[in-house]
Design a protein around this nucleic acid. Structure first.
Length: 263
DNA sequence: ATGTCGTGCAAAGCACGA
């Protein structure tokens, strides 16, 4: 079974690349973030034609998360039960589902914008809600369990292209990393993609490169898309890899897919 | 500190978010 997570940065704009990628890589389950579409614009029938059931949570312009599966899709949970609101709105940033016997969450953690901002506080609150939900469900679901998506935190200094360039910035701050670590402390392992190169190398397993300033071309990447797996899921995981090719060429997302191949 | 995208509004140019 192949499970993938991909911040697609607009379902509509990415559709040609997304469908080609699905044809090529044949994921059994695909978790997508930043769909930037409303539920009534979600291409459910198109995906169904290709053999995928799907569930989506989205309100339109920003955020939006979806689950695609050809190995079953049940027990869909729309949003985290304790998810904080931002500016009075509970945003479309999390959707849970059981696919092929694996309980999964597709998450799009808030960016945080600048350290100490309201959005940064919101990001930390979101992590607390994610942790609370994972704690409950890890007790509830005895089988394979995983949180996958865009966590907007680079867990280690080596997970950004140049840590000195990130001094005082989000994604690497101690509170953000502590919030991520608190989720992992529940017994969820960051299943790190196989390294094809050393840190700093353009081939290091980053998942995101800025569109601005030719980030990809200059190798300025970050590993912020993660798969946090409980022991049952980690045990079944044979390969974890990043499809850098999906970041190349015309009209890519700024993120590359993270792929888990299970027994 | 920017360089690019994507979206949506009221429009063919901007504001916003990443």
């Amino acid at each position: 079974m192949r499970i993938a997570t991909w911040n697609v940065n607009s379902m509509k704009a990415r559709m040609p690349r997304l469908l080609a990628w699905m044809d090529q890589r044949q994921p059994d389950v695909l978790l997508v973030q930043e769909t930037k579409c409303a539920d009534d614009g979600w291409p459910a029938l198109l995906l169904e034609d290709r053999g995928y059931e799907s569930a989506h949570l989205g309100s339109g312009r920003w955020n939006g998360v979806g689950v695609l599966s050809r190995v079953g899709l049940s027990d869909v949970t729309y949003g985290l039960p304790e998810q904080p609101a931002y500016d009075g709105v509970t945003e479309a940033r999390a959707i849970g589902a059981t696919c092929g016997g694996v309980r999964l969450w597709c998450v799009y953690v808030p960016n945080g914008r600048t350290v100490g901002s309201l959005h940064y506080d919101y990001k930390l609150e979101f992590y607390a809600a994610l942790q609370a939900q994972a704690r409950r469900e890890l007790a509830e679901f005895p089988g394979a369990y995983g949180l996958l998506g865009d966590f907007n935190v680079a867990p280690h200094d080596d997970d950004v292209w140049d840590i000195t360039a990130f001094a005082g910035h989000t994604h690497v701050s101690t509170p953000e990393r502590a919030a991520l670590q608190a989720v992992q402390a529940l017994g969820l392992t960051d299943v790190v993609p196989r390294a094809s190169a050393t840190p700093g190398d353009v081939r290091y397993p980053y998942t995101f490169w800025e569109m601005r300033m030719l980030g990809f071309q200059k190798g300025r990447g970050m590993r912020i898309d993660l798969a946090l797996a409980n022991p049952a899921l980690a045990e079944r995981t044979r390969e974890v890899w990043i499809d850098r090719d999906a970041r190349k060429g015309q009209g890519p997302s700024d993120h590359a897919p993270l792929v888990l191949d299970l027994d």
